[in-house]
Simulated scan of single mutants.
Amino acid sequence: MPLSVPDRLTDLPYAHLLRPHTGPLRSDERYDTVHFDGGEYTDQSAAGATFLECAFTGVALSGVKLRRARFNEVWAQAGRWVGCDLSDTEWQDSAVTGGVLAGVAAHGSALRRTVLRGCKLEAVNLRGAVLRDVVFEDCLLRDVDFGEAKLTDVSFPGSTLEEVRLRGARLTGVDLRDAVRLGLPDGHQGLRGAIISSPQLLELAPQFAHALGITVKD
């Protein structure tokens, strides 16, 4: 599922159209070909806003309310999203690279054809989210909750999963083979529909045995 992600701002097809953003974020605003560069936004609200062909570089958002916001063809690099409300947001044809998402509420969100590369996700709530054609590449996912979420054609190449919860999730074509580590506290719960490698199967074998009531003794 190759998804192309530009490495540089100048590689964006709409780079020549970008104009710098000034002032605070605003709810229900439409941001079209806007460049958010190096700004800090704290406890502001952009709920219901639309970001179309926008770029974020080195932006720090803390406690920002973005509920029901839409991100279409957005490119975000080296940003920090801390304690933000991203619930019920929509992401399509977008990329987040080298970013940090910590304490983020993203339950009920929808991500389609989106790449997260070299990101750190910690204490991120994605319960009930819908992910289709999403790639977590070289990411650290720690204490990320996919409970009751629907994941279709999602992959985790080079990523480390620690305390990632999948209980109640529905997986279709979810490829975990290239993940560096599978730290799944729910064990086998939620893995139906996933693709794993033989070494990963051996790693998870004790959890499968426990779930089936099997005692293994040598």
Rank of each mutant, 00 (worst) to 15 (best):
V135H: 07
R165G: 00
D37L: 15
E163H: 14
V154R: 09
A205V: 00
L9C: 05
R112D: 13
D175M: 07
L171I: 02
E73L: 00
R19Q: 15
V134N: 12
V100Q: 13
P199K: 06
T89K: 05
D178V: 00
S4W: 06
R30K: 11
T10G: 01
A47E: 10
S4V: 15
R70D: 03
R142Q: 08
E148G: 02
Q189G: 12
C119F: 07
G103K: 04
G39T: 02
L182R: 03
L184A: 04
V135Q: 10
R127Q: 15
M1G: 13
L126C: 11
G158M: 10
L17H: 05
G103E: 04
H210P: 00
E73H: 11
G48T: 10
V154S: 08
P206D: 08
D37M: 09
T152G: 00
A60D: 14
A179K: 09
D186I: 03
D85G: 08
P13K: 07
S94M: 06
V34M: 05
S62D: 13
R8A: 13
P185Q: 10
N72V: 13
V144I: 05
L126S: 06
D88H: 13
R30D: 13
G183E: 01
V174M: 08
A15N: 08
R170Y: 05
G58W: 03
F36E: 01
T97L: 15
S4D: 14
Q200T: 08
V216K: 03
S155G: 03
E29H: 09
L151I: 08
C54Q: 02
Q44K: 12
V124K: 07
L111R: 09
D153I: 00
P6A: 05
L3N: 05
W91F: 15
R19S: 12
V64S: 05
E29F: 06
E137A: 15
G83H: 10
V164A: 07
L52C: 05
G183S: 06
L86T: 04
P2G: 01
T57C: 02
G38F: 05
T33N: 09
T114Q: 03
D11S: 12
V74N: 03
